[in-house]
Design a protein around this nucleic acid. Structure first.
Lengths: 348, 348
DNA sequence: CTGTTAGCGCATTCAC
DNA sequence: GTGAATGCGCTAACAG
């Protein structure tokens, strides 16, 4: 039963036709007799034949229908959600994906991309590891296969891009806080040397400046983009000579940490201190956020990224395009039961 | 530059040798002159040649060095961590993986597995969608490619397995609570119709019975395995005629929800109510758990799964093996700063 | 040590 | 409608 793979020849012989007839049946060509088609499909099922895409792809220089996805940190729910979104449209489009985790290592990233390339991917979506350079992608784009960078930028690389509008989102959020009367607004959490961090702090800064409020660097407190990082950041913020009365948090994890830290100091988030967070993982943990958030919807972004790449693949040789994924400020006035314990009656 | 793929023939011509010499160089065979080897490798680099594994694999009936991984819910951090663990060892072993999300749909799962098979995977790791039957995997195992089921069981399927010792973990956890003097101990959260749920509740039940405490079905309150589910479950539990004084929570998300729900009722988790949770995602969100937990370490489990599968692949035609991944009870007496706000001074 | 020959499984002409 | 050739990129034999 498992003595070597069963091929078209086998099923041709068993069905008493020639291999090309079988081939036609496989691609459901209209120019084959209905009776023979039935016979062939029956034999295919009986012998447990499986189509060999590798061989097919070798022959015709068609698309392998494999695409590569490399993300910097699949452990982060944001990127997991992103990947799931991509997976959805890839599956529906009849593609399979190599999906790998670079763990922020450019070396692993390079290796994994090389490996994918040897396997003939017809496109690549990359959420680049920190420190990725244009040169790393040079041979890939030179070979003509479409590459899409998401979430983070690769400066100088001639690839398509899909980024969130971090700048506008931060502007909106800070504007909201200012509208509520806050004047000292901190930026808490996140790793400083990322483009996302830079964009979000830029929006924070410009929104303050626009309102005539000085944007003091003391109020930008970077840390890890985690719950622990949020706790640490807010603790530092509250120790400032002139502590802030509100904060824009780098992401949702940091925002939760900030709430934790506030409660630990006897402050009620929302009532005693305004909190707005970028919500990179909205829809994921539906029960939690009673916070006002700048929502990114990673699954939607993933779907959009996949669609972009497939379009490029189908279009053949298209120019790289840059798209900005819009975000929206979600203001939650009240918070239902089952919410995040201490985060009700939000001032922000 | 990108006029068709550059092949062995191209580099053979450019290097002034024959293709088989190039082939030998590619597989770093010892029987090739050092000078010609240098020449060939130089040309390879200059022309930007990429090895075509598809063609190679077609010729020699060797392993494709592609393995398939299908997970029921990549949105769940547990499975994301699991996948990352697998990714690590696959990368180190020179494999690439198709990684896909079935989203608990047996249909998607079947399609995706079929697609992977057409691409010639040399092994499959499956965290089965709910409702997966042995028949779904029948053709795959019949074709002789190693299959490993993780986390959940597929009854009747002749595949290798790697499960956590949910039963023993639940026993340990409940024993711990009993040792602290609790008599009415609930089981909160989790979807009822899963094997994991069945195993964990069985351990809960048997530990109670062993201690001579009746295990009332009222105390098993299923819900979703999420934070919201935990909130709902503990609310129901506290409305019982004889409410519990402690609980074993299905997973960490549910445990957090239980703490939320307790605080909403003015009860301090750990002080007023004993909480132990299965910690499916330990190491992931390092800041949070001030809870006593039954730890599973999904990344480690993923690494182990990958190693198992690779061993099977290398061993050729090995019998399926069943391995149990041990879990450990982690008792946290105190909880440092930056912990989960309300979950300190745990009674459990 | 290196070149020659012959397929791996499939799809695409062409004849029939 | 169907069957016989040909070649995709590569490796395995065997010659030279």
């Amino acid at each position: 039963m498992s003595k070597g793979r069963v091929t078209v020849v086998d099923i041709a012989r068993a069905a008493g036709v020639s291999k090309s007839t079988v081939s036609l049946v496989l691609q459901s060509s209209p120019l084959v007799n209905e009776a023979t088609r039935a016979k062939v499909t029956a034999v295919i099922r009986d012998l447990g034949y499986v189509y060999n895409r590798g061989a097919a792809n070798l022959r015709q220089s068609a698309s392998s229908r494999i695409i590569g996805i490399v993300v910097n940190d699949l452990t982060n729910s944001f990127f997991a959600e992103l990947a799931v979104g991509m997976d959805m449209v890839m599956q529906s489009a009849g593609y399979v994906q190599f999906l790998s985790n670079s763990a922020e290592s450019v070396d692993r990233q390079r290796e994994v991309i090389a490996s994918m390339r040897e396997h003939g991917i017809s496109g690549l979506i990359l959420s680049p590891a920190r420190g990725t350079e244009a040169a790393d992608l040079k041979p890939l784009v030179a070979s003509g296969i479409p590459v899409l960078a998401v979430v983070r930028n690769v400066v100088g690389a001639k690839v398509s891009t899909l980024f969130s509008d971090n700048y506008a989102g931060a502007m909106d959020a800070v504007g909201h806080l200012i509208g509520l009367g806050h004047r000292r607004i901190a930026f808490l959490g996140g790793m400083a040397n990322t483009t996302v961090f830079a964009e979000r702090t830029a929006g924070w800064r410009d929104a303050l400046n626009k309102a005539g409020i000085p944007a003091s660097d003391d109020l930008v407190i970077a840390s890890t983009a985690s719950r622990a990082g949020g706790v640490a950041a807010v603790e530092r913020a509250l120790q400032l000579p002139e502590p802030p009365t509100a904060a824009l948090c780098f992401n949702d994890a940091a925002a939760f940490g900030v709430c934790d830290g506030l409660r630990a100091k006897g402050k009620e988030p929302g009532r005693d201190f305004g909190v707005v967070g970028f919500d990179d993982v909205i829809e994921a943990e539906t029960a939690v956020p009673a916070l006002t958030t700048v929502s990114v919807d990673p699954q939607g972004m993933g779907r959009r990224a996949a669609q972009m790449l497939l379009k490029q693949i189908n279009a053949g040789r298209a120019e790289p395009e840059a798209i900005v994924n819009s975000v929206r400020l979600v203001v939650r006035e009240s918070c239902g039961a089952g919410g995040n314990g201490g985060a009700r009656r939000m001032l922000a």
